[in-house]
């Protein structure tokens, strides 16, 4: 059963990765044509990378899976932080530095929630939701030993994958949103 969950989560992560990568490419192409800052393109590239790593973590094993699992949080955190920085609100990143010693999951959660506060429409809800799932990760992983933690973690990961896929697909759709 768990392998089915892992495959579904992995597929959703790849879908999200494709969506984010498509948005990043469109932004990069525009930047090349008219100039401007490629920061937004970088941010979506990092989010795409985070989704690819999440997919890898779900289907691989051993050290690779573990490394990719942690990388999902750190790449997401960097992506959301970059979106925050794009808005010339670098000061918003200062409290996030405080979350770093608590681990990448908490950092990703804090970054996503802070970033979502400046968003609107579905992006606001979905990014805040992704932030909450990173919190669930921490709770499931560290605070709840045993099967409860495992189940919570599995639910959190599934929701995170779904949220990211919805976000990416919604904004990568040909007509925009």
């Amino acid at each position: 059963m768990s392998s089915t969950v892992e495959i579904v989560v992995s597929a959703l992560d790849l879908l999200g990765a494709a969506g984010f990568a498509y948005i990043a490419l469109r932004l990069a192409s525009l930047t090349l044509r008219i100039g401007g800052e490629p920061k937004a393109s970088w941010a979506f590239s990092l989010l795409a990378a985070a989704q690819i790593l999440a997919s890898l973590a779900a289907i691989s094993g051993g050290r690779l899976s573990y490394t990719a699992y942690v990388a999902t949080a750190s790449f997401s955190a960097a992506g959301f932080a970059m979106l925050t920085a794009c808005r010339e609100r670098q000061y918003a990143l200062i409290p996030l530095a405080l979350a770093l010693p608590l681990g990448f999951d908490l950092l990703a959660a804090a970054t996503a929630i802070v970033a979502s506060m400046g968003f609107r429409g579905p992006a606001r809800t979905l990014v805040a939701g992704i932030g909450v799932t990173f919190l669930v990760r921490t709770v499931g992983l560290v605070l709840l030993p045993g099967p409860t933690g495992e189940v919570l973690l599995a639910i959190g990961e599934s929701l995170r994958s779904m949220g990211a896929a919805m976000l990416a697909v919604l904004y990568a759709a040909p007509q925009g949103r």
Binding site: R26, G36, A40, L83, R87, R120, R124, Q175, R177
Partner: peptide, 18 residues
């Protein structure tokens, strides 16, 4: 046309165009 589409996306992410 492409700029209009991208602008819609970026506005939701709290960004001005590029």
């Amino acid at each position: 046309k492409e700029l209009r589409r991208i602008k819609k996306i970026l506005l939701d992410f709290g960004l001005d165009i590029l």
